[in-house]
């Protein structure tokens, strides 16, 4: 059973490696969005330091939104998705594998680059570990929730905008606790509560989202 999980995971990672330009585009988008803010609000270090957690988190959220529509599109177009749905392997497993591969190729690079961008925004030293932990816990939730939206809008005209409208309201709690964790660390109240809530959210999303995603894929492909 787990062999299907790892087979799909390896296949998706391999495909992502062959199309690595896409991954770089996501990353470039993340960097550019963050770099826009000093132009918009002014380059005053104090202001940038204050808004840094929120800016980094909003940019990470938009970057993960940008690539979401690719999650199932290719497999839908070439018929792989239907084959997978028809196969006897439990769908929840390979759906989870696909989302994990998606996160490893779009979420993880963002997590890695975020501290560098934090330096550009003059984020305080002490906040970096919390920033990274919050992103590690939060961006998989975005991928899991987004996968449900991507499955529902599969193959629709104007699916990208629709996907944004569907999932952005659902992303709000993740944004609140993610950016809130960094801000709480900076203000000295400690980020433990935020990170625990993010972890709980991740556990909840991991338990529920693959099922919803599987149901959505069945609906969208029949």
């Amino acid at each position: 059973m787990l062999s299907a999980f790892f087979a799909v995971l390896r296949r998706d990672l391999l495909l992502a490696w062959r199309g690595r330009a896409d991954v770089l585009v996501t990353l470039a988008f993340f960097v550019i969005v963050v770099c826009l803010f000093p132009f918009g609000v002014g380059a005053e270090a104090n202001l940038l330091r204050t808004i840094a957690p929120g800016v980094l988190w909003v940019a990470a959220l938009l970057a993960s939104l940008l690539s979401l529509h690719r999650l199932f599109a290719q497999d839908h177009a070439d018929g792989t998705l239907e084959q997978l749905l028809l196969s006897s392997e439990p769908a929840v497993l390979w759906v989870t594998a696909k989302v994990l591969a998606f996160w490893l190729t779009t979420g993880l690079p963002v997590v890695v680059v975020a501290p560098v961008l934090g330096m550009l925004l003059d984020l305080e030293q002490g906040a970096y570990p919390v920033l990274v932990i919050s992103l590690v816990l939060g961006t998989p939730i975005l991928a899991l929730l987004g996968a449900v939206g991507a499955a529902l809008t599969l193959g629709l005209r104007g699916g990208g905008m629709l996907l944004a409208l569907l999932v952005l309201p659902l992303f709000v709690p993740v944004l609140i606790f993610g950016a809130g964790a960094v801000e709480a660390e900076l203000s000295g109240t400690g980020a433990t509560a935020h990170l625990l809530l993010l972890g709980g959210g991740l556990a909840g999303a991991l338990a529920l989202a693959p099922w919803a995603c599987m149901a959505a894929l069945r609906v969208s492909t029949e």
Partner: peptide
């Protein structure tokens, strides 16, 4: 498909409404 897709997003939304409300309140 429209019926079922709508139903799924309505249920996903309903599960998230309390989460959204409490996170916003926090």
């Amino acid at each position: 498909r429209a019926d079922r897709a709508g139903a799924i997003i309505a249920l996903v939304g309903a599960v998230n409404v309390p989460v959204i409300y409490f996170s916003v309140k926090w």
